[in-house]
Design a protein around this nucleic acid. Structure first.
Lengths: 189, 189
DNA sequence: ACCTGAACACCGTTCAAGT
DNA sequence: ACCTGAACACCGTTCAAGT
């Protein structure tokens, strides 16, 4: 709980949480198509209350992406514990992708994670980048992946996989995409 | 020139062309952010005239994507002429990607090329699919790429590469993405 | 036949009035 | 302090009036 949330009046904090939960559910289902009025209705508050807690629609969505994204650091840390350097890399890609599955809004966010759209989650990015970089560097050092692989490739490739999820929803087509990507990481290009 | 364009009054046809040219330029530069009013102003006509020629904004954009996309078939046919089966595949990916470069609107279209958004270009898709399928099947038969590669992988992978172009504009980062993809197509996964 | 732009609809955002 | 929803702004789309 942040200090802002701590100092909120009890009813205001409940409202904030209801708005957040509604937004999360609807954003996951409908992506950027969610309307503020719909979120407000679903949360049982007026639109003005939504704007009191989140200055813009974008700010609300960013806040949700932040919480979702923070899971990535945990995943990376878990993958890092794997013995085999190559399996750790595979784990990093696969589990990150699975985390995005089923949340259209989060997928959109991941597609543009380099972009201005999603400023404000720098801290979460850094918390993920540290273990993820170690995983990739270790695999490079062990000769388990192509020697020019860097952490910077991760968001780029993730963007591609996520695009497949978003534009070919429901199916498991993205797993095929992932497999081809992983094949491309093998050493000796 | 389609039969519809042929039967248009001379001034109407000129207007249609001006609208189309304006839309193409602005869509390439601004993507989906282009406003109809801006296109109309740039073409020197009223907004009503834009709607007379194209029933919706989406229809106008689809029409432009259609002309852009028709280049893909030509590219595929040229790539097919290459001696080396593997080089033909590389050519197909690289030149298709280059065709999309520098046109933000077209990139958006390619990202969702499987999707409803871009219905109405089936004919152009088929004209591209035929030579592209031959290129890929030939490379598979020659053992030049992984044996499970199919034409269906092309739009999926293109979607990924195009996402990198769109979300990391200007840079050549997408070429890195392409290189990793191509590496993933090598035989023996 | 075709063109025009005022008017309408929709949705993000603001703010005066209420508790 | 916080909540509410009518009102505003913006942009896609329509349609009555004009040539």
């Amino acid at each position: 709980m942040t200090s802002i949330e701590r100092t909120l009046r009890a009813d205001a904090r409940r409202n904030r949480e209801k708005i957040f939960a509604a937004a999360r559910e609807l954003f996951a289902r409908e992506g950027e198509l969610v309307q503020i009025e719909e979120i407000a209705a679903h949360a049982g508050v007026g639109i003005g209350t939504v704007y009191r807690h989140f200055p813009t629609k974008q700010a609300l969505l960013t806040e949700m992406v932040r919480t979702r994204f923070s899971r990535f650091a945990e995943i990376a840390i878990e993958c890092e514990e794997m013995e085999d350097p190559h399996e750790a890399v595979t784990c990093l890609f696969r589990r990150s992708a699975e985390e995005v599955e089923g949340d259209a809004g989060f997928q959109l966010a991941m597609m543009g994670s380099d972009q201005l759209h999603w400023e404000g989650i720098e801290q979460e990015k850094a918390a993920f980048a540290a273990p993820a970089t170690r995983i990739i560097d270790r695999a490079v050092a062990a000769g388990a992946v192509r020697e020019d692989l860097t952490f910077g490739d991760f968001p780029m490739l993730m963007c591609g996989i996520t695009s497949t999820m978003y534009y070919s929803p429901g199916g498991a087509e993205w797993r095929r995409h992932l497999d081809l990507i992983l094949a491309g990481l093998r050493p000796g290009s």
